[in-house]
């Protein structure tokens, strides 16, 4: 199978790789580039564990072909902490016990990040809607919802 070049920005740094044509972005990120923060749960679009942010929009990397991401700006949970300091969402997930086995966490955090980028003070309904494409088998969701609301409060206090 012919290899094709793909080039994009991942968490602010330029990446270039040769992948087999038809490779999913999830596979390229995890097995070629070595960013294992997006998880492969179902490869069917139903679990949300592979969610990443592409050009500001939440996408499922398991259903996205790497070749279609040429020149894109891709963000994953691995790029959130700055200088060893966790992002407010990561902090809130840890503090609120919103992560147990952790498998859904990177997808949940990406979904929450796009929400807070557009809606800094979301309602509970906004949070439920934003996370509705992600499945968690551990927490029962309530701690995750509370963590996202707590991160939003922390952000607005910092901004004030």
């Amino acid at each position: 199978m012919a290899k094709v070049p793909v080039q994009f920005t991942l968490n602010g740094s330029e990446k270039a790789e040769f992948v087999e044509s038809g490779t999913t972005l999830l596979h390229a990120l995890r097995d070629k580039i070595g960013d294992t923060s997006p998880k492969g749960g179902c490869h069917q679009g139903t679990c949300g564990a592979c969610s990443v942010i592409i050009d500001g929009e939440l996408r499922l990397s398991c259903l996205t072909l790497a070749e279609t991401c040429g020149g894109a700006d891709i963000r994953t949970t691995a790029g959130l902490a700055e200088g060893g300091v966790l992002h407010p969402l990561q902090r809130a997930f840890l503090d609120g016990f919103a992560t147990q086995c952790g498998f859904c966490t990177p997808g949940m955090i990406m979904a929450a990040k796009v929400l807070l980028d557009h809606t800094p003070n979301p309602s509970r309904e906004d949070v439920v809607e934003a996370l509705s494409g992600s499945i968690c088998r551990c927490t029962g969701y309530e701690p995750i919802i509370q963590a996202v609301l707590a991160a939003a409060r922390a952000n607005s206090q910092n901004a004030a």
Binding site: G45, L60, L63, T64
Partner: peptide, 24 residues
């Protein structure tokens, strides 16, 4: 044809071998 891929890439991931080539 490849649109957003939510059905056709999913089918490929599930092992649907009737699709060998996608066009966009």
């Amino acid at each position: 044809y490849l649109g957003g891929g939510t059905l056709v890439v999913r089918a490929a991931n599930e092992g649907d071998v009737s699709v060998s080539s996608l066009v966009r």
